[in-house]
């Protein structure tokens, strides 16, 4: 049995490469360069759009959100190497759950707080009531 365990540890020592990991140094650099260029283009578009007068103002939040989500996708694929391969299944499942919780926390807070805000008396009236007491 100890022999088996030794062999197993030996296996781990001699096969450090993750399945799906890039084995070729140059190929890896190419992938990172593509990711860097795409991310730089999306960043430049975001900063340009935010200051630009040629973007219809009410559409600005949606445009900036789309650019940001696109750039996050580029980072996930080219930098964090999330892929559709079977090696990434667990990581993608965890990521989906993470995105779900983040959406609950962010949008849930915004909806609840906006709703509370609408049902509150304006601040001057609130102060008035407190003074009358």
């Amino acid at each position: 049995m100890s022999d088996l365990i030794n062999k197993r540890n030996h296996y781990d020592d001699t096969h450090p490469a993750t399945p799906g990991e890039i084995h070729d140094y140059k190929e890896g650099i190419q992938k990172y360069t593509i990711g860097l260029v795409l991310a730089a283009i999306l960043t430049a578009l975001s900063f340009w759009a935010a200051d630009s007068a040629s973007v219809w103002a009410p559409s600005m939040p949606a445009l900036l959100a789309a650019l940001a989500i696109g750039q996050m996708g580029v980072h996930l694929v080219f930098f964090l190497h999330i892929s559709s391969g079977p090696e990434s299944t667990n990581n993608i499942l965890a990521l989906c759950f993470g995105v779900f919780v983040v959406a609950l926390v962010v949008f849930g807070s915004i909806i609840i707080m906006t709703n509370l805000n609408e049902h509150m008396l304006p601040m001057d009236q609130l102060m008035n009531i407190q003074i009358q007491r």
Binding site: Y25, G28, I29, Y32, G35, L36, F79
Partner: peptide, 12 residues
């Protein structure tokens, strides 16, 4: 982030 990725490749 890019240079960090290169570092990962170089160390691999």
């Amino acid at each position: 982030s890019f240079t960090c990725g290169i570092m990962g490749l170089a160390s691999a």
